[in-house]
Design a binder for these strands. Sequence first.
DNA 1: TCTGTACTGAACTCTTTGTTCATTATTATG
DNA 2: CATAATAATGAACAAAGAGTTCAGTACAGA
Lengths: 183, 183
Amino acid sequence: MDRRQRKTREAIFSAFIDLLSKKDFGQITVGEIITHADVGRATFYSHFETKDYLLKELCEELFCHIFDATNNEQSEHRHLFDCDAPNSVFLHLFQHLQKNDNNILELLSCQNNELFLLYFKINLQRLVVSQLPLFEARKSEILPDSFWVNHIASTFIETVRWWIDNGMKESSETITEYFCLAV
Amino acid sequence: MDRRQRKTREAIFSAFIDLLSKKDFGQITVGEIITHADVGRATFYSHFETKDYLLKELCEELFCHIFDATNNEQSEHRHLFDCDAPNSVFLHLFQHLQKNDNNILELLSCQNNELFLLYFKINLQRLVVSQLPLFEARKSEILPDSFWVNHIASTFIETVRWWIDNGMKESSETITEYFCLAV
DNA sequence: TCTGTACTGAACTCTTTGTTCATTATTATG
DNA sequence: CATAATAATGAACAAAGAGTTCAGTACAGA
C-alpha cells in the first residue's frame, strides 16, 4: 500500500476516533472529518464509500486487534472459558479493554453506534461458540445454543457498558467476577 | 385537545410506525412521513420539533400503555417478580409483546433505534428496582444493585430480541422459562 | 529520471431539513 | 347559529450536508 494512502487512511481514522469521543456518530459530518484529518473531500470518498463504511472498517481493524490477541493467548492454555479460572479469556478481554487501546471504550459507550456493538457481538459470539461446552452444563442442556450464546455475549457487552458508565472504578478481576456471577 | 390535532397526530404516528416496519429509523425522512400521513410539512413541524422527538413521544405512548397494564396487574398479586411463579410479571410482559399491540415488535427488532431501546430499558429498570428484594438473594448480596438491575433489564430485552429474530416460535411460557434460567 | 497514481480544491447537483406566511378550513363556545 | 380562535395548507425559501466530477499538482516507487 502506497505510503500516501496509509497516511491519509490513518489521518481519517484518527480524526474520526477523535470526533467519536466528543459527539455521537450520527452527528458527525464528512465535512468535520476531512477538516480534522486535513484531507480533501474527494480523497475521503476515494477511501470510503460512506461514513458507515468508515465505521465498519474501523471496527474491523479494532476487533481484529483485540480478538487476535485473545486467540493467541487462548492457544497457550486450556479451559480459558471457565469463568472461575483466574486466566479466563474474559479476564483478558476486560484487562485489554481497561488499557483502552485505540479508544475502544469511547466507541462502546457512545450513543448511535449500533453498528459497532453489532460487530463486537459477532466477534464475541464466535469466541463463545468455539468454547460452548465449557460453560455451565445445567443451563446449556435446557437453553437453545443460539439463545445461550447470545445471552453470554450480550451480558459481556452490558457488563462492559456498566463498567464504563460507572467510571471503571472496579478492577478487571472484580468485573470478571461480576460477569461470571451474572451469566 | 382539538380533534384536528388528535387526528393529525395519529396520522403521523401511524405513518411513522408503518415506515418503521419497513426501514430503519435513520433512513426515514420527514418527507416520507408527511406523504404517508397526508399532512403538510408545516403541520408536522408544528407537532414535533424533530424526527427524534416524534420517536420519543411515540415511545412514551407505547410504554405508558404496556407498563401501566403490568402495574395494574401487579397490584392484584404478590411476588409477581418471582420468575418461577406462573403469574410472573415477566410472563405478562412476554404475553403482551406476543400480541404485538401497536407494532412494538418492529420497533424492538429494527436497527438504529437506540433511543427506543433506551426508553424500554429505563421503564424496565424502574419495574425491576421496585421489586429487587424478590430476586435471588445470593447474587443480590454480591453484585452492586445498579449492576444487577441493569443485568436483569438487559437480559429481558435481549431475550425479546432473540425471540423476535427466531420467528417467535416459542410460547410465552417457554420464553419466560429461558429468561428466568438465564438471569 | 520517469511513469503511474494519489491528493487537491473548487464547483456542482441533489436531497433533506426546518422556517415562513398568507390563505383556507374547522373547531369550540357563547 | 354566529363568531373568534386556532389548526391545517401548500408553496416557496434558506441552509446544510452528501456525494460527484475534473483538471491540475505532488509524490512514491522502480
